[in-house]
Design a protein around this nucleic acid. Structure first.
Lengths: 329, 329
DNA sequence: CTGAAAGCGCTTACAG
DNA sequence: CTGAAAGCGCTTACAG
């Protein structure tokens, strides 16, 4: 590999001068400048990031921890982060927790060994926050409640749940069943709370029989959960799914069992993943602006890395969720 | 940050000994061993990968270049790569070319600066192969034809195209329209060739009016292309889409225009992305085993990095595509 | 069984 | 305007 020294040799100057020139940190004589740039180009010089990282103690890399890449919500977040990081000239290392805290912790350890400059966390969200404490680098938490002091980006999950359930009630789609992912995760706990709150506000009963918990936020699990709900033989006119992946799986299950959507059973999801509008019928859902959220996460993280201060509002950004009415209700 | 030296100091030995012990490269007295391990744990020592990388000239990182993260085909590949690399204890840096050669080249330059140990390439596939030449590291090409000497993993795209078109003909769904992504990319050129071949073999005419090219392989573009096809007013009974993202977009367009699938217009896609089976009607398609392909790519790349030799079959792996019959035909 | 020392490729304070 | 030198945190051949 071509090194600074090689370039220096060819240009007839010292390595320090080459470094100064290539980094634009000092002015040199025009003639010297040209010689150096020409030499670098001729040799196709590419600086060794490991050396820079070692010397400057900055890796120019951010880590991203996501709970489950199969979930298109995270996929869209990943895409946003990748794009935004490119603009900010940061590299990013993605890790998939695959719903396992053990794997998540092992990944965090590795990321730290890489000396990432900061972390965007949207992982399992169960007890991992402990491991995020005193990590020594900036952390932005996404779609997960943060440990105290951490910066976080979320929609208001309680009011999102209310919005969904309220809408269903208003359309006469009661009783409402719920398919949720683990309520050990605050995000989903809050959405279900919102649902209960909406029912309570309307003096409607809340039947726990109607709430089923999926193991994982995939369409397979949504499918399975819907089948379970159907098999229970309890009557319901709609299902609120705490995320769209579960919803699209549930839709498929309903269709296979011969139910018409929304006539027999209506569905509301949460997230508004990119394919939600493609389905037939297209999915009514509570929108989380995924691309924006991913973009903001990178933006905030970079600010933190540069030791800029965030406003109080930025520190715990809460986005108002939006009901997107489509064809499943 | 805690360094080797800190651990050595606490354990009362030299830095070299700590390094030997932690890497398991030399046997030391049991007592010394225990002291070192205990000290490392106590200080929560995490080796600085940049230093290791600089010293050993190995980054333990592989790069992945993908044409378009919005395409669920690539997303599934990414997921497979992330998972497999985790097993192999490699880090991975993903780059999205976003359909732009310029961005792709800039990304490759950056990856090289990171001193990645190898590259999995599934990028734009237009002229970039030139930039992949003499890159100095192992490259595995995925779903793209490789430059000579490179290792590649593909399905047989010509026979995949034949399979799709042949099936449609056999079901009496002629004339067959085609929505393709740029045929400058060999992958798609081959699929369309297969389609033509299938028609020719059956003495059927091939109307170029029926072939439209999308700008990008997204559902939006598939939607647009289908609308264009419909607006042309030429009659056709089915559409072969060269990938599933285009297909699901096209389906939505047909539904909005009031066509029934498959009664009025049948559809065959290509890839079998994870959501293909979820749609209503579920998508008939030519399967590329994405997860396997991603897994194999990592496996082969690791072999190459370790300088193991690949068999001739592995060097240019061609997977037989499989027709998955579902509900859109 | 253990350690001293060189060196990987950079950056940067300091000197001239 | 330019360069010599130290040092980032590791690994590893060599010596004892």
């Amino acid at each position: 590999m071509v090194t600074l020294k090689d370039v220096a040799l060819l240009a007839g100057v010292s390595a320090s001068t080459v470094s100064y020139v290539l980094n634009g940190k000092k002015r040199v004589r025009k003639e010297t400048y040209d010689r150096i740039v020409k030499a670098a180009k001729e040799l196709n010089y590419s600086p060794n990031r490991a050396a820079i990282s070692l010397k400057t103690d900055q890796s120019n890399t951010i880590g991203v921890m996501v709970n489950n890449m199969q979930d298109l919500f995270f996929m869209e977040i990943i895409r946003a982060i990748e794009n935004t990081a490119y603009e900010y000239k940061y590299n990013v290392i993605f890790c998939d927790a695959v719903n396992s805290e053990e794997r998540e912790i092992s990944n965090i350890r590795n990321l730290l060994s890489q000396r990432i400059d900061g972390l965007i966390f949207a992982g399992t969200g169960k007890t991992t926050s402990v491991h995020l404490k005193n990590i020594g680098i900036p952390v932005v938490t996404l779609d997960r409640s943060a440990g105290s002091g951490d910066v976080s980006i979320n929609t208001d999950n309680v009011s999102g749940g209310e919005l969904a359930a309220g809408f269903l009630v208003d359309r006469g789609k009661t009783p409402i069943a719920v398919i949720t992912y683990s309520t050990l995760v605050g995000t989903f706990f809050d959405r279900v709370s919102g649902y209960r709150k909406a029912l309570a506000a309307r003096n409607l009963p809340c039947d726990d029989q109607l709430v089923v918990e999926a193991e994982f936020s995939t369409h397979d699990e949504g499918y399975r959960a819907a089948m379970k709900l159907l098999d229970k033989g309890v009557g319901f006119k709609s299902i609120f799914c705490v995320n769209d992946m579960l919803a699209v799986g549930a839709m498929r299950a309903l269709v296979e069992r011969g139910y018409r959507i929304p006539e027999d059973i209506a569905i509301v999801g949460y997230d508004d993943i990119p394919i939600a509008k493609l389905f037939v019928p297209s999915l009514t859902t509570i929108r989380q602006p995924q691309y924006d959220m991913g973009q903001k996460a990178v933006e905030y993280l970079c600010k933190m890395i540069r030791k800029e201060v965030l406003s109080e509002e930025e520190k715990t950004l809460i986005i108002e969720p939006e009901l997107i009415i489509r064809e499943t209700v």
